[in-house]
Nucleic acid binder design. Structure first.
Lengths: 241, 241
DNA sequence: CGCGATTTGTGCACGAGTTCACAAGCGCCT
DNA sequence: AGGCGCTTGTGAACTCGTGCACAAATCGCG
């Protein structure tokens, strides 16, 4: 597994990509650093300290340094990080040096919005095809693409080298769509449907559930309002039954 | 995530669950359990074992039992959990016994979709008002609500008792909107804009960045494809430079 | 009425992730 | 050249989360 390899500081200069085997928590933060770096680059700075970048990304500076150290030494002590170099390095690590083709399944309310979301295009992805099970939607043009029927998924995915699929269907259809995506060779799925998907080994699934996020906020609201409504003191009121 | 309370001598007397101090990881999973439970209830079952519920929610059964134990003992050994009782208990814990009013700011591509998303209504939330900074959109009806101008936010939020705000604007406007929300008394924010928000103590922010999710998947894709060229002198088909 | 089958609740050990604190390295100024 | 201030990179302690394994509790049945 993750033996302590010397981890050559010049990482990718040779032919070997050297798979750094990053902690998952670090991987999840790299995109945030990348976004912050692009923002910093636009303001004209060409170096940035860990403190500055941490603030821009909303994290602790020690955490940021440890995260970046996992991809090698790309900072200069006493100076900071070279913004352009770091951008390249993170983009390479995330596999964004090539623009990845994405299939979007389900062009309902949410799917429509995702198809038109500019953030995908500007951050390394290309929505290569739209699919839906509803024949009445097939052919409909959205943002320069025509909706295709889900039965064409395998053919199109192969032709376009699509490895990532996005599910924006109702929950009832999601598992079938996932199966179809896997059958078409997709190995990464982003699921917006509120349900658990079962997929074979080797396929990655990430889930985004909009209602869940609100419910988590609701919990904190509940706690906050309960605290403020405690009459008297908020210390050890602790009313028994 | 956000701030922690000083948490003084926390009364842990039995009986009525007076604000159990749940681990954040547990809170994040409760909504998932809740969704699974509703699904199970619809199929007619009135009890469910930790094993069954864990499978439906996509987690480990020991983890699930530990999570539920934090809210008290609501299972019966040898039998399982009473579905209806557990639903009530989780909904209470999450503060979903009252339907919470939400303000949505930004009715662009994504905002439109969110305004029409049925999942919010069916899971404890009511979109109470829509706002936008663009005067040309004000008055536009979406899903039974008319878009209002952002300058009316404070008034409407007070009238409707809105404590949760959703930001679906471009990143450049997000901080201003957040400030306006906070000024209007909102204490929980769900942010879809790709930027870091700074808010005062006591305000919770959760962030959903659609592109980040794809970038994380991209990392794993990158790793998978690099793995296919296993050490053995296979294809050194330059992925990078 | 007691026994066995079943399932919850939890103590404990382990691993992942976070934070602190500081040595090592770098550039600049004198 | 040498010292000084600044910043990175990282060892080490600590916190948080997870998963195993099992005792305690409950039900059904003979």
């Amino acid at each position: 597994m993750s033996q302590h390899r010397p981890t050559g500081p010049n990482g990718r200069s040779g032919g070997v990509p050297a798979l750094p085997d990053l902690p998952e928590a670090t991987v999840a933060r790299l995109p945030e650093y990348l976004r912050a770096l692009h923002h910093i680059a636009e303001t004209g700075n060409d170096t940035i300290s860990s403190e500055g970048l941490a603030a821009a990304a909303g994290v602790n500076s020690a955490k940021l340094r440890k995260d970046l150290s996992h991809l090698g030494s790309y900072g200069t002590r006493g100076v900071g990080y070279d913004v352009a170099l770091l951008i390249d390095q993170i983009e390479f690590t995330l596999g964004l040096t090539q623009r990845r083709a994405v299939a979007l399944v389900g062009v309902g309310n949410l799917g429509h919005a995702l198809a038109g979301y500019a953030g995908f295009a500007s951050r390394g992805f290309r929505i290569a095809a739209l699919f839906d099970a509803d024949h009445s939607r097939v052919g409909e043009p959205i943002n320069g693409l025509n909706v295709q029927h889900i039965s064409d998924l395998a053919t199109v995915a192969a032709a376009e080298s699509i490895a990532i699929g996005v599910i924006a269907t109702p929950a009832a259809a999601a598992q079938d769509v996932a199966d179809a995506l896997v059958a078409a060779g997709v190995t990464s799925i982003l699921n917006f449907a509120p349900c658990v998907l079962s997929v074979p080994e080797g396929v990655d699934v990430r889930k985004v559930d909009l209602a869940i996020e609100l419910q988590i906020l609701s919990f904190h609201e509940h706690r906050k309002s309960a605290l403020t409504s405690l009459p008297g003191g908020l210390a050890e009121e602790a009313v028994g039954t």
